[in-house]
Structures are given as structure tokens and as C-alpha cells.
Amino acid sequence: MSAQNCLVRNDWICWEYVHSRSQELTDATVQHVWITVVSVLIGLLIAFPLALLARGRKAVAGAVLTLTTVLYTVPSLAMFSLLLPVFGLSASLVVTGLVLYSLTILVRNILAGLEAVPAEVREAARGMGYGRIRLLFEVELPLALPALLAGVRIATVSTVALTTVGSVVGKGGLGNLIGDGVQSTFKAQVLTASVLCVLLALVADLLLLGLQRLLTPWTRIRTTAGAR
């Protein structure tokens, strides 16, 4: 009885809400996660060739960085709205907007990572007979990985937060629940969805940190040795 009452009293924290709407919460979380994952993955697929193209070419790098910065400056709501005539009320609209945002951070970090590869390492690999492709994927990319993954972490965390704005077209994952909750002044729904959203960003960040440690064990050895 008392558990039911928290819905009637419109409490901020209401386990009965979490319980009775668990399906709704799960669906929203699933939508939130897939929109974020798809956006960051597509962002990576676009950012990587862009960074390769910009590497070593000052004019191209300047143009790419300026363009992505301009895109990043556009407010998220405006970005989604400008895509409306192209995509209509669809998840593709939200994903496209999020991809455009992620490019700024991803291109910058991949470029920085590739440019930080020491020239002597590159020359040594060339001397050992490495071709351009093998040099890129077996020498340069692993060395650029820490910077790349740092970029992926920042991009993912911001994307999780920005996805909520997608609720303007009804595809905002947990943002949909936040939007509906404001309309109906449903405190428990807004707070629960907001907390889940922050938790999602935190979990994503920790998972990527784990991946970063798994893929680049050498950086960890260096930092722990440095700390001592």
C-alpha cells in the first residue's frame, strides 16, 4: 500500500515506479544504448579516414578541423532540427546528428595520436621492410591507440548525454521518459531516467577504460612504474 502511495504522492524516489514501469525503462535504456553505440561506431568509421587524409597535409588538416569545430558549435537541438527535412522523425536523424558531433573529438584525437608516433619508429619499421598499410595497422595504429581510445571515451560520454535531446523527435532513449515526465510533472520518472542516463555514461566510460587497459597494456606498465 505504502509503496503505491509514492506514485500518488509524486515522490522523487519511488521504487514502485521502477518496479511497475521496468519494461518501459528497459526499452528506453536499450534505445539509448544502441543509438549511442551506433553513433560512436559510425563516427569512428568516418573519423579514421578523415584523420589519415589530414595527416601530414596542413591545408587538409586545417579544413577538416575547422569544419568539425563549426559542426560542434551548432547547438544540438538546432542540429537535429536542421536534419529534419532530410530524415523526418526517425532514429537516423538522431544518429546522424550525434555522428557529426563525435567527429570533432575523434578526428582531433586520432590525428594527435598518429602525429605523436616517433619518426624513428616509423623509419625503423620501413627499414625492416614494412609497407604503408602494414606500417599503419601494425605500428602506427597501436601506438596511436591510447589517444584514439581517450577520444572514444570522451565522445561516448558526451553522446550518451546528447542522445536525450533526440526526444524532440521521439528517439531520445531515456530522454523520451524525461520529456514525458516533465509534461506530466512525474518526478519519479524524470529523476529515474536522469540517474540512469548518468549511470549509463559512467558504465560506458569504465568499460572503455577497461578496454583501453586491455588493448594497451604497455601504457599501464609505464604509468605504474612512473608513479613509483
Binding site: V157, V160, L162, V165, G175, G181, V190, S194, D205
Partner: peptide, 18 residues
Amino acid sequence: SNVGRAVPVFAVLALLML
């Protein structure tokens, strides 16, 4: 800065409006 990035603006505005 990391905390600021993880918290959705929309959520904060929504919470304030309640």
C-alpha cells in the same frame, strides 16, 4: 569537466522544472 560532460543538460533542466 568530465562530470559536466556526463550529465545531460536536458535532464538538469527537467529536474529544475519540477
